[in-house]
Design a protein around this nucleic acid. Structure first.
Lengths: 237, 237
DNA sequence: CGGATATTTCGCCTCCCGTCGAACCGTCAC
DNA sequence: GTGACGGTTCGACGGGAGGCGAAATATCCG
């Protein structure tokens, strides 16, 4: 989903190992509330002796998953930054992944599979289709926009020059994890997506990252790409 | 960061334990490319015997971190969905967290700490400040908008009724992990943030989730909240 | 059908790691 | 000071998990 922004390979095992222990997981989860808690409190919450908790906290400190602030004879521990909280939250989401989704959830999931934003660019079947159409139409070769592409995008109101001048990567492929194929990311992806929303071809949906194709958008895209839909699927109803 | 959307507590330890083993981590990382790989290939990539790899894959399968597709005498394994890929990516990010950031990174980090979007609503010091100002001004009590709040928000072009009718939670607090305090999330948070962008009080920055306060916005907010800035800090330069 | 190859299952060994009790070091209260 | 309490360090114990080789199973190819 965020392949564009993935850090180069780092050993994830050590960090995972820190979270893998049930006691440490309980400690970290207790700290998810944002408050700093004393060592003894954490030991109690985790249901373990003070010695054990201390050992765990020491390891979490080494691994820079928690910070400690000493205050008198107490030591208050808290999570070491929002990245750590994010890991715990994402991990909680996959851990809670139900075997079978509710109707509402599966409908939302289908909407997100169809079209959603990935940070600030279009993803899902629509995102993958868009990149395919752009490449098929010779608008994009590698990471460069061709003259045809420049014309087509200008027609949409995309400022390609501004995107090229942006401080982020211009037009990287971003791996789409529901499609397992690439969609268009980077400054250009953001600019194109912004233009599509601006034109009202896509509108943001009720679910945070969902966007949906409008009738206007369907017509516009069909005209742009000579009748080819971005995706062959019927829209989610 | 995404406390609004966090699943209820699930034991994250088992999933973390699956990732915690270096061999399994290597297997999962190899699968991050999105392609399905055969068991033997994965064994080779992970630098381990076929028997060992098989055992690991079996456990990953049990834990629903990978899917398998049998094709003749080969068994191709792939990650079981985008959530799993997300976990690995976020985990890679914290694992790679440098001890000291580069100047550019720290500047970007400061921008994000100041103001950014969290899914589709305002976060960072600006987001926390906004919620504080709304509460101080008596615009919001608990999760309800007061008549004063209704007037103030209407002046900004926020359609409170529409937000209230949305299918997502109306105005939940969303824990902000850089501030360790709450900001306004949910349908109302999204609507307010949309209005602020629409008015040009905030504009999206070069970095994916960054937004920055404009001069117009500074004036508008000052007028709204009788001179109080959302944050006492000088803007990031 | 029979040999070759891919993958899994089965023991077995080893070693790491979480646990606890007890001793030790700081800090607070009187 | 001196006792009480929070927290960490030390040492020993036990269980669980990963590693491998060998045998079993499944699939392909001729």
């Amino acid at each position: 989903m965020a392949a564009e922004h993935v850090a180069r390979d780092a050993d994830i095992a050590p960090v995972a190992a820190l979270i893998a222990d049930p006691t440490r997981a309980a400690i970290l989860t207790a700290l998810l509330g944002g408050r700093a808690l004393a060592a003894g409190e954490l030991a109690r919450l985790a249901g373990v002796g003070a010695a054990t908790a201390s050992a765990h906290l020491s390891r979490l400190l080494d691994g820079r998953l928690v910070d400690v602030v000493r205050q008198g004879r107490h030591r208050y521990y808290r999570l070491a930054g929002h990245e750590v909280a994010e890991v715990l939250e994402v991990l909680a989401r996959v851990s809670a992944r139900p075997l079978v989704r509710s109707l509402r959830q599966s409908r939302q999931a289908r909407m997100l599979e169809e079209a959603r934003t990935c940070y600030d660019h279009l993803a899902g079947r629509a995102g993958v289709g868009l990149l395919d159409r752009l490449r098929e139409g010779g608008c994009l070769t590698g990471e460069e926009v061709t003259p045809e592409g420049e014309r087509l995008l200008a027609g949409l109101g995309v400022d390609v020059a501004a995107a090229r001048a942006a401080r982020r990567r211009f037009a990287p492929e971003c791996l789409d994890w529901t499609e397992r194929r690439a969609h268009l990311g980077g400054a250009l992806g953001a600019a194109v997506t912004g233009a599509l929303l601006e034109l009202g071809w896509y509108v943001r949906g009720p679910v945070p990252r969902a966007v949906t194709l409008t009738d206007v958008g369907r017509g516009g895209l069909a005209a742009l790409f000579s009748g080819k839909e971005l995706t062959s699927h019927t829209p989610v109803t």
